[in-house]
Design a protein around this nucleic acid. Structure first.
Lengths: 192, 192
DNA sequence: ACCGTAGCACTAACGGTTAGCTTTATGTAT
DNA sequence: ATACATAAAGCTAACCGTTAGTGCTACGGT
């Protein structure tokens, strides 16, 4: 997206991308567990330490662009019009994320993640981070303290909706079903 | 509790207990990160492989008796009287678990867990397992398929309540606040 | 042209975890 | 009682993700 950066930054980004691409390719070819960090580094023609200077862990190689999801949640709350109610805005965002992950092209990756306990666990801990950010965004939007239990609860419920819907037979319908529950929970809270 | 077992099982249980006790003592003395698996094994006078035949991971040493919590949740649903409504029963159980973990004696262990990212992550993944079991128990209790989205949602919300309450300023009040929301969510679901 | 430093390489190691195989002790059938 | 089958524990050695330490090189700002 942003080309006009210096040579250094472009090279760094290129190295990062090459590592991520190589990793994903090898993982899909031979299986996540059957590919070692040293394999990825060798195939991408970088040192192991270089790989770890770009990615914090082996699992992070798979979730290269998870920032998009986190930012999406935060923006769904922060960047909405003043008369746009909170919960439906969240519901639309979760809908979009579920749709994105249920796209046919994403099937092999999803399958890989679902069959690796380590990756599943990593994804869950990611979702917790997302919930924290979302809680902060909601609290800021409403002008209540960041530690507000109601905000943190709604944030958790929303990220739960994503995880639960993905495992449901009809993900889109599941999002709607869960958000009917969340809507009720929200109205029952002090803030609704 | 169950003494009259064979010698073999008693010895096995004794070994397991000795490992767990030694581990917890060392962790509290020197800090979780500063104690290696080899240290624990040496101090408990067992081989490293023996330790791993009793505990699946280093983190599992800390959560030795988590089965109690999982069973507590399941029993809170399954073993209640027929006229006892579901959500209040769950609320009472979560209340009890939060109280148990907020007990003064548990403070050092809680503190240790909270300061280790690895332990925090492990605890979260434990809670997910608990939510799965709870969802199954709820589904069985209501006679609906185990994959029911509403059941799985309520189960997640309940385990979320535990995690959120523990981090709140007034845990007991937080449980009540969150359960008012869960009650509303439940009534808005197809099953409520 | 020069210097500070970001990025990367290399080696070596640490720490959790597992595989492979041997030994000891227990329960059971003869 | 004896012998066999097997569960529990042991030992060694390694695998694999991850990090520390160190130095080199090329880019960017002055």
């Amino acid at each position: 997206m942003n080309e006009p950066a210096g040579r250094r930054e472009r090279k760094k980004a290129a190295t990062r991308q090459k590592i991520a691409d190589t990793a994903l390719r090898l993982f899909l070819e031979r299986g996540y567990g059957a590919v070692g960090i040293r394999d990825v580094a060798a195939e991408a023609d970088v040192a192991v330490t270089t790989l770890f200077s770009h990615f914090a862990s082996k699992e992070a190689l798979v979730f290269e662009q998870d920032q998009g999801f986190e930012q999406g949640l935060v923006r769904a709350v922060a960047d909405r019009t003043p008369d746009d109610p909170l919960i439906p805005a969240l519901r639309r965002e979760i809908h979009a994320q579920v749709r994105h992950c249920a796209a046919p092209g994403a099937a092999p990756v999803r399958n890989m993640i679902d069959s690796s306990p380590s990756l599943r666990e990593y994804e869950e801990s990611m979702r917790l981070r997302h919930a924290e950010s979302l809680a902060a965004a909601i609290a800021a939007d409403l002008g209540v303290p960041e530690t507000s239990t109601a905000c943190r609860t709604i944030a958790r419920f929303a990220t739960d909706a994503y995880a639960l819907a993905r495992e449901a037979a009809d993900p889109q319908a599941a999002v709607d079903e869960i958000f009917r529950m969340i809507e009720a929970a929200w109205e029952a809270s002090r803030l609704g």
